[in-house]
């Protein structure tokens, strides 16, 4: 790792001030992507601002039609929360399938979405469940938040404070995990919510995307059979040693069907 100044704020306002006054500061959340990247000297920071001591960024609350998860809440906390499980079991399932138990004990929702990894699970949850990303200065609709591969709408010195998810009528997440890392080769969140049908796909493309053709078909008839013949184009999808673009395109339909089946079974 290149050298940095370590900062440990105890409040959000202190963290914002530290970020603003740094030359090239980075926020440290769970650190499970940032620290490995810094070890390889692929990332460096003048100041590393550790959000671990900012208690106002932690916690889960349910009110009305929304579940709000603090940015520094770990995947293990989301997976184990009876509030989350009761309101959106698909979200608890998704969080419980990220990485491994130790990764889930450290990794956070805020860190995950700020990184916007194309294979991360949470982007599918945010877009599929019509979530809103709350920051220290504004609220951003999930679809506007993820702007590309490792790119988000976050401005300089902006810190994610929480994510609010709409509670759907029913929802389910199914993924085809990379057998080593458990990152999604393809993951699909299906939700039937007040905004209509949502099919959100992670892992397949440079960033999370919706499949409008499947959403329209499901609005007509909410069954896996309605989307069985809908295939998406492999153009522009990711291709690597784990799966070709064509294979990922095929998996989108397979995972979407499974997600719809699972959601319908619990509806």
């Amino acid at each position: 790792m290149y050298s940095f100044d370590y900062k440990s704020p105890s409040s959000l306002s202190e963290a914002v001030a530290m970020l603003q006054s740094s030359d090239d500061g980075l926020l440290l959340a769970g650190g499970h992507t940032l620290l490995p990247t810094m070890k390889q000297r692929l990332a460096s920071a003048s100041d590393l601002i550790d959000l671990g001591g900012v208690s106002e960024l932690r916690g889960i609350s349910v009110s009305g039609d929304a579940v709000t998860v603090g940015a520094m809440t770990t995947h293990a906390e989301v997976a184990a929360s009876s509030d989350v499980r009761g309101a959106i079991s698909a979200l608890a399932d998704l969080a419980g399938g990220i990485g491994d138990p130790q990764v889930r004990n450290a990794g956070t929702i805020g860190g995950s979405i700020a990184n916007s990894d194309p294979s991360a699970d949470y982007p599918a949850a945010l877009v599929g469940l019509c979530a809103t990303v709350n920051t220290n200065s504004r609220s951003i609709a999930a679809e506007d938040f993820f702007t590309g591969m490792f790119e988000t709408a976050l401005a300089e010195n902006e810190i994610i404070t929480s994510v609010s998810f709409h509670i759907p009528k029913c929802a389910a997440y199914c993924k085809f995990p990379n057998p080593a890392s458990r990152y999604a080769i393809v993951g699909v969140m299906f939700a039937d919510c007040s905004h209509g049908m949502r099919v959100a796909v992670t892992g397949a493309g440079p960033s999370v995307f919706r499949v409008s053709e499947m959403e329209s078909a499901l609005a007509q008839s909410c069954a896996a059979s309605s989307i069985a013949d809908i295939s998406i184009s492999a153009d522009g999808l990711n291709s690597d040693i784990h799966a070709s673009a064509e294979y990922r395109a095929h998996l989108v339909t397979v995972m979407a069907k499974r997600a719809v089946e699972k959601a319908c079974a619990s509806c």
Partner: peptide, 12 residues
């Protein structure tokens, strides 16, 4: 809680 100590700073 169990964590991987290669991916956490001593300062954390």
């Amino acid at each position: 809680k169990s964590v991987k100590s290669c991916t956490i700073l001593a300062a954390q």
